[in-house]
Design a protein around this nucleic acid. Sequence first.
DNA 1: CTTGACTCTGCCGTAACGTAAGGCATTACA
DNA 2: TGTAATGCCTTACGTTACGGCAGAGTCAAG
Lengths: 242, 242
Amino acid sequence: MKTVKEVSELTGVSIRTLHHYDQIGLLKPSGVTEAGYRLYDDKALERLHTILLFRELEFPLKEIRQIMESPAFDPTKALEQQIELLEKQYRHIGRLIALASEIQRRGKTAMGFEAFDKSEIEQYKQEARERWGNHEAYQEYVHRQLRKTPEQSEQEGRDVMIYMKNLGDLRHLPPESAEVQQKVKELQQMFTRNFYTCTNEILSCLGEMYVDNTRFQRNIDQECGEGAAEFIRDAIRIYCKQ
Amino acid sequence: MKTVKEVSELTGVSIRTLHHYDQIGLLKPSGVTEAGYRLYDDKALERLHTILLFRELEFPLKEIRQIMESPAFDPTKALEQQIELLEKQYRHIGRLIALASEIQRRGKTAMGFEAFDKSEIEQYKQEARERWGNHEAYQEYVHRQLRKTPEQSEQEGRDVMIYMKNLGDLRHLPPESAEVQQKVKELQQMFTRNFYTCTNEILSCLGEMYVDNTRFQRNIDQECGEGAAEFIRDAIRIYCKQ
DNA sequence: CTTGACTCTGCCGTAACGTAAGGCATTACA
DNA sequence: TGTAATGCCTTACGTTACGGCAGAGTCAAG
């Protein structure tokens, strides 16, 4: 049985926070002395650790209580939602940084004193969006990857290769033919499903990379036949132009 | 002269917010009717736009007031600080997402109901950090780049090439020689100064890329002499091993 | 003159505590 | 055993940027 101070020193939460959690019913002490001192046992400490974990993930305290009280409340789903929420914030802040940077970069003189007019701000926003676009796709990719198990990742790797092979097998056709272009489209859709929103711009970057990157090119040519990498790149180039 | 409702509809801020801004002295109406109705003119609207810009960038209202009241308060510096703050938040949220994803990825069964113990949480954190590490360096890079003018970027590109050339010029020496290793160190320091915290791991990735990427290799060899790319990669490999 | 739209000034509530203030309880030391 | 030093309690206000009332006055139209 530990007093508030001991718990506080053990876990790093303030005494006031313990009072608060008691007050809102999130963490009741295991017992109280006749003088009204709060006493916590090991089970309470464990509960506190769980609370702190959720708190770190920026769950609101109310929700933490619900999660821990009713087993009906699905923690898996809650976690999923929370991740979505965090990702929203993350993107939002990213855009803010881009906007602020844009102002800093261009407005060194204008920043002097008075007002920006609205059109100017919109201009900043526009430019920030453009400079930020690619980055956001990458973010999405990383986050999606983080949530995958190694087996999932491996499976996806094979999937990609199948699509590449489908496309590479058509390299006797001209890259602008309808059939080839259809396959490019499917490739793009597959990327969007499995990795990130694959815009034409991104797809085009990927296409260039398949040739620019020695290892990629070697792999693709090995799996799909000599010259496949270049063929795929060309097909993508054409696809992205229209 | 516009009433609160008109201003509200024009700018999207609530009437209550206008009241609030009046109350805290952030945006006083240009005039009031004898009945006490607030009236705003175009100058006030402009001021409001500026306020909204700073608000979007998550400046606290108090600070916005200070910035706009006293020209002594340096907006350039304030913007810089704000960006730093946003970046801190950004990294923080990124790590949270990594942590949450890690729990989701591994804890599907464990997530059931009860407590995590502390060691388990630390384990999650550790793994999340590892999976997140490279990503963070990239973030830093993007953010630093965003703030640079095109001329700055260009200058830096030339700087990099100078360092590369310094290193490439030593390719008659063995890559493990002290002189070469010293140059590698300088290269790493230069990256950290100009782009991002260049850990050994990242440096090593860069080294591999100089050979893996066809375009990079060609450029390096062209500028620094035949075989320079491979030599630099080897020198970096050795440097990173100790 | 009434009606409906509009506006005003309070005041309470939010989230998660921080920071006192004022008053017992416990412990340490002389 | 007295007293000082901690430790603990409760109560309550402060923080941020408003949202949402209530109750009352104001304005333009029919």
